[in-house]
Structure formats: C-alpha cells, structure tokens
Design a protein around this nucleic acid. Structure first.
Lengths: 212, 212
DNA sequence: GCGTAACCCTACGCACGAGTAGGTATGCTC
DNA sequence: GAGCATACCTACTCGTGCGTAGGGTTACGC
C-alpha cells in the first residue's frame, strides 16, 4: 500500500506536546481517576501505546502535566514581577500576569488547583509550588514593612500571605467560570482587596476581637 | 449457636451515622475514586451490603457525606452570626464559628473543599453551597455600605465577597495542615485581613492601576 | 411460641480501564 | 538499496472494585 497514510508521522517532541495538551484537557474536565488513557490518546489523535512509550504511566503523565503548567505559570509571574520595583507595583504586575495566565490556560489551571489538590500522590507536589508562591508574597510584605520601619512575627506574615494567595486563587476560579470576564479587570479588583488590606497592616492598624 | 454474637445488632439510625463517619474519613484521605467501598465498610465495622442497603451506591454515599457536613457547617455559621448585629461583629462571629468547625471536623471539611471541588458530578453541588456563603458575605458588605450612604456595583460586591471567602478557605487549609494551630487565633488573623481591607472599601478608598 | 420484619453475612458476577505483546510502515544513513 | 531506528497500530491480558444474589439470625408484636 503506497496510498496516502491516514495519519502523519510527526517527530517525538511535537507529539509529546499534543499528548500533554490532550491530557491537560481531559484531566481538567474529568479528574485524575475518571479520566481514561484511551480518551486522552484519542483526543491527542494517537493510539494508547504511543502515550505509554513517550510519557509513561498515567501517574507520570499527570505529573508531567503538573510540571508543564506549573512552570509556565511560575515563569509568567516571575517574568512580570521584577524584584527591583516598589512593592505595590510588583504585586500589581504579578497579579496581572497570574490572571492573564489563568484566562489563557483555563484547563491548565484547573488541573493544578482543582484536581491535584485532593489526590494523595500529587497534593505534595502542588503544596510545594503553592508554598513558593506564599513565600514570595510574604517576602514582599516583609520588605515593604521594613521600609516603613515596622516588623511583625513570621507566623503572622505567613498567614497573611496565605490569605492573599487563597483570595487570588478563589478569584481565579471565578474567572474560570465566567468566560466573559476580563482578566485585567479581575486583577484590579483583587489588587483593591489585597493592597488596601495590606496597606492598613503596614501602617500598624490592626483589628482586635471584642472583649465579650 | 447461642454463643455471644461477634457483632452487636444496632438500629438503622445509629449504623447510618457510623457509616457516614467512616465514609467521610476514608473519602477525605483517599479522594472519591481511590476510596473503596470495602474500606469504608470495614472502617464502619460492618459488611459492604449493609452500606448499599442503607446509603445506596458510592455516588449517593458521597452526596450524603457532602450534605451532612455541609449543613453542619452552615448551621454552625448561621447560628453564630445573628442578623441583627453590626457588620463587623457578624463577620467576626461567623469566622470564629467557621474556623471552630474546621478545627473540630478536619476531614469533613477536607471532603467538602478538597475532594468535591474537582469531581464532576459533585462540583455543582459544592458550588451551590459556596455561592450561598458568598451571597451572605456580599449581603453583609452591601448592608454596611448602605449604612455609610455608599453603594458599589453588584459585580464588584460579588467579587470582593468571593475573594474574602477564598481567603478564608485558604486559611482553613492552613489550619487543617497545622494541627497545633489555634482556630480562634486563626479567625482573628483572618478578621484582620478581611475587615481592614473591607473597611477601606467601605470608606470609598480604592486602588487604581498605574498609567504605564 | 410463632410469624414476620429488620439486621447482617459470605461469596460471587461482571465491567471497565491500565498497561503490554507483537507486528507494520516510513524515512534516514552510508 | 540494505540496514536500522523511529513512529505507529490492533488486539489482547488481567487486576481491581462496584454492586448483588441468596441465605442466616435476632428481636418484637400478637
């Protein structure tokens, strides 16, 4: 048979990306367990053994997705928030980059934050990345505080950073479910909540529980 | 055989609660798919067919867990945050009740917010509950705003409420992973971030993106 | 004391999906 | 154009775990 082959032969690097694209898409919709390797292979336009040959087992494939989307996201943020800018400017650019990423890679983000969170083998991986983010935010706050000549306990700093990251993720979720929403505008809204709250803390204003 | 029966016979209502306890525990550790009905049955000290007889299929069992933990949580919050209190007091009491619940029912909360989030059939159920919470918070903010004689767009209100809820959930996660941490103290920290930021908004202070 | 309903079990059928065996075609090098 | 590596396939095996068939035992009403 010298007729036209039904499917083109493509170099490994290209196929791997197609497979990862398909995997991210399917994992994001179905979750790790409910996703089937057959569906991923079909979506990638390839047969199942190729997936195993290139990316390994289902677990390894999921980790590969996590890594690709994770580093993409971190790079987008790191590239935008240069360390020599003032704190509010850094925060703003970081947020804008983050929401831009989520808007453009909705399923990538869904895999990271909706699927990997609960499934035991991957939760750790994700937690590490999250911890890096929290650390960065905490560092920014700390830096800003020192410039004001103030200081707060490391635990408090970490917790505030956690809250900020959580709020941001939550808005990202909102963004993912509202396709018509504008990432830029969402970033501005987040900045309002975060920076105004943080600015108060920076100036030493605190809230205290009532005596009752 | 009239010897002592190996296992006691118990009324249905009791066994159902034991099963739900076991199910919540196992689902929270393993996730929906990785959890097996055999393990749940064993953990409940009963055989598998009983689980099917009382609570139905695996999916129905999970929904039952979701409902029980969800209503428990909502009741805890609603019971604490009486609607006739001033806004900051309501927020404070609501937060305290919430973190108290999470501290006392760590795996219940894990099932709700870590497991149900990604899995397709349940995400909707969870989203509804979350939306109710967001609505309550948004209502509180709106009420406080009107008392100041101000008003902001409904979308902005919803988004701010989303961010607050997200930040709170994130701290709850932190609490769940730090067993030595004090729920009350965590609530205070959250209140600091939330209320200070919100107070700024209430007084009409906003942050605007730089021109660049 | 005897039926009947509620409680509880052991032991299976069966489908679904991860991972593989074994083979074919195409292009590249020398 | 022979040799070899790479890209690719169809068609299986086999474990795991959901859900059930079929039957036993204790309490409770009458």
């Amino acid at each position: 048979m010298s007729s036209v082959p039904a499917f083109k032969r493509l170099p490994r690097a290209v196929r791997e990306q197609q497979m990862l694209d398909a995997a991210v898409k399917v994992f994001s919709r179905r979750g790790f367990h409910a996703a089937s390797m057959d569906e991923i292979a079909e979506d990638a336009g390839i047969s199942k053994p190729m997936v195993y040959a290139y990316l390994g087992t289902k677990e390894e494939l999921f980790v590969a997705c996590l890594h690709r989307e994770g580093t993409r996201m971190m790079q987008a943020i790191a590239g935008a928030a240069a360390p020599d800018l003032p704190a509010d400017e850094r925060l703003w650019r970081g947020l804008r980059a983050f929401f831009g990423f989520v808007g453009a890679h909705r399923d990538g983000w869904a895999v990271l934050y909706r699927q990997a969170r609960g499934e035991q083998p991957f939760a750790g991986e994700l937690a590490t990345m999250r911890a890096r983010l929290v650390e960065v935010v905490a560092g920014m706050l700390d830096h800003a505080l020192r410039e004001e000549g103030r200081e707060i306990a490391a635990v408090d700093l970490e917790v505030v950073a956690y809250a900020l990251v959580g709020a941001t993720e939550s808005l990202a979720d909102w963004l993912a479910d509202h396709p018509e929403a504008d990432p830029e505008k969402t970033a501005t809204r987040m900045m309002n909540v975060a920076w105004l709250g943080a600015a108060q803390l920076l100036h030493g204003v605190t809230w205290r529980p009532p005596a009752d």
